[in-house]
């Protein structure tokens, strides 16, 4: 029933110095469908792969608007994510009410870190089973991208991915990381779609139903890209449309992606 004698509860150390329940929670994140985030000097784009539980079921929501200046993508237990997004929205409203100021993303992320940490240290609790990508923009410090995990790690990235097969997306992101800072909105989204495509299972494709894109940035409130606009981006992706500033730069990416898929064992 148990994998070993040290994973009965959250607050028991294994002799190797690990907390197994926390590591199981991290596994829950890996079972969720992938989410990708990329940051430029002006914008953050967050993308996610939506799943549906069957032919007749709708696709599960993966992106949530927190405030005008912030949105998140989730991977893992959606019900836990809803609790957290509710908390985030409430904190943002409190900041608006009390100070007439959008809550800085860094503050909110460290608040989530504090909440998640409590769940890792107290007997009888369980860690959140969800990982978050948080994209936020503020006037003082510009765009930010954070990853929040059940082990209460909250880290900032220029580009990151979480969820199933996210390592493939990371490989893509690392390859093109140098281009992200100067990329415009379109290029950022195309890079995101390329990365997200890496996480697909064999013979699956990105389409209007399973792709979700959200963007926030300078002079741009959080916005989901849906319908015709999403279709335009997907068409570009299908046509081999380059995210890279140089058309040639995109070709090796495609080549690399097939290799990655071959190596992928997840």
């Amino acid at each position: 029933m148990f994998r070993n004698q040290y994973d009965n509860d959250i607050s028991t150390w294994s002799p190797q110095g690990r907390l197994h329940q926390i590591e199981y929670a991290l596994e829950a994140v890996k079972q969720g469908s992938a989410a990708v985030g990329i940051r430029s000097n002006t914008h953050v784009v967050i993308l996610a792969l939506k799943r549906s539980s069957g032919e007749l079921a709708a696709h599960q929501q993966k992106l949530f608007r927190i405030d005008n200046h912030m949105g998140i993508a989730i991977a893992g237990l959606v019900s836990d994510a809803r609790v957290l997004s509710n908390f985030m929205r409430t904190e943002c409203m409190k900041s608006k009410m009390l100070y007439d100021r959008p809550l800085p993303g860094s503050r909110l992320v460290s608040m989530i870190g504090d909440k998640a940490q409590i769940n890792t240290q107290n007997y009888g609790r369980r860690p959140y089973g969800v990982g978050l990508l948080v994209g936020s923009y503020d006037e003082e410090t510009g765009p930010h991208l954070y990853e929040c995990l059940p082990n209460a790690n909250c880290l900032e990235y220029v580009a990151v991915s979480i969820g199933a097969k996210s390592q493939s997306a990371k490989t893509y992101l690392e390859k093109f990381a140098k281009e992200f800072p100067e990329a415009d909105e379109d290029a950022l989204i195309m890079h995101g779609l390329h990365a997200l495509r890496e996480t697909l299972q064999q013979e699956k494709e990105l389409n209007l139903n399973n792709a979700a894109i959200g963007i926030v940035g300078k002079d741009k409130d959080w916005e989901l890209i849906e319908g015709d606009r999403l279709k335009a981006y997907l068409d570009r992706l299908e046509a081999g449309g380059g995210a890279s500033t140089t058309a040639a730069g995109d070709a090796p990416a495609e080549g690399a992606s097939t290799e990655d898929n071959a190596m992928e064992t997840d």
Binding site: M97, L98, Y99, P104, E140
Partner: peptide
């Protein structure tokens, strides 16, 4: 103490005082 590059500016203090 947050030490994150953000601080309350005059309009924010004004809103707080108002509350």
């Amino acid at each position: 103490n947050a030490d994150d590059g953000h601080s309350l500016a005059t309009p924010h203090v004004f809103e707080y005082l108002w509350r």
